[in-house]
Design a protein around this nucleic acid. Structure first.
Lengths: 127, 127
DNA sequence: TCGTAAAGTCTACAGACGTAGTCGATTAGC
DNA sequence: GCTAATCGACTACGTCTGTAGACTTTACGA
């Protein structure tokens, strides 16, 4: 699975559309709109524009289905998420993931549940 | 220390300037330029523009010093970093920091050192 | 004293982004 | 067959961003 065919960045609004497609695809523009137009208070036109831009960026592909298109992601969610996480860690924590973790811990952004889960994960990683 | 007086977002280029000021302030525009103009390949004009925008956004304040201004941050680095981290975790991991951690772990973005540090931190947090 | 270097302010401009309207083609239902 | 709904393509437009030049004032050195 390609991580990011083009190097183009995906904007916030575009990302919201990607989430819909990652959740379930392929879907038509109308389908996508039905899922987010209400919550984001968008018109169908906005969704169409964002989809075209995503296609132009090589992040989404289309397949014809009758008179319309069905859209599906070309980049995996995990690749996107990984890239964004890395960007953040690089930009703000000098590439040290543990610094990010320390920050979250210190700012009390970690719930008890978070801590437990991480302990489990750490044990697994150490095996 | 206020976390973010205005709600205005700080852009990438602006953030680079903030880092310089966080590292050491107050500084003049020229000082800032001396620190980053080379690495980012910017002209002094660019730095001046970014500084004005940061002042307009309420992220940086000035104090007159003779004929010029000295700039210093109005928002703490930790507040900024915290906000950005939270945004990422909210946007990509449904607010669960442990999911981010799991992702970093899975994508092998965690070094041995990272793991050790986190173990130490976790133990501390549990005390 | 006088010019010049430097500081801040204003203006500029192309590209990205958020948001959406219009238009021409097509299709589905009557 | 014809009309109304629908689809994608194209156009629009204000704002934000990155990047920087031009202009104005001022202070310091010769």
């Amino acid at each position: 699975m390609p991580s990011d065919p083009s190097g183009e960045r995906i904007s916030d609004a575009e990302h919201a559309v990607m989430e819909v497609l990652w959740d379930h695809s392929p879907r038509s523009a109308t389908d996508v709109c039905e899922t987010i137009c209400d919550t984001r208070d968008w018109s169908i036109a906005t969704v169409k524009t964002l989809l075209s831009r995503l296609v132009a960026k090589g992040a989404v592909a289309t397949e014809p289905e009758g008179r319309r298109f069905l859209y599906h992601p070309l980049i995996a969610r995990s690749a996107y998420v990984g890239g964004e996480s890395r960007r953040l860690v690089d930009r703000l924590f000098g590439g040290r993931a543990s610094s990010l973790f320390a920050h979250l811990a210190q700012s009390e952004a970690l719930s008890d549940e978070d801590l437990t889960e991480m302990e489990v994960l750490l044990k697994e990683l150490r095996r």
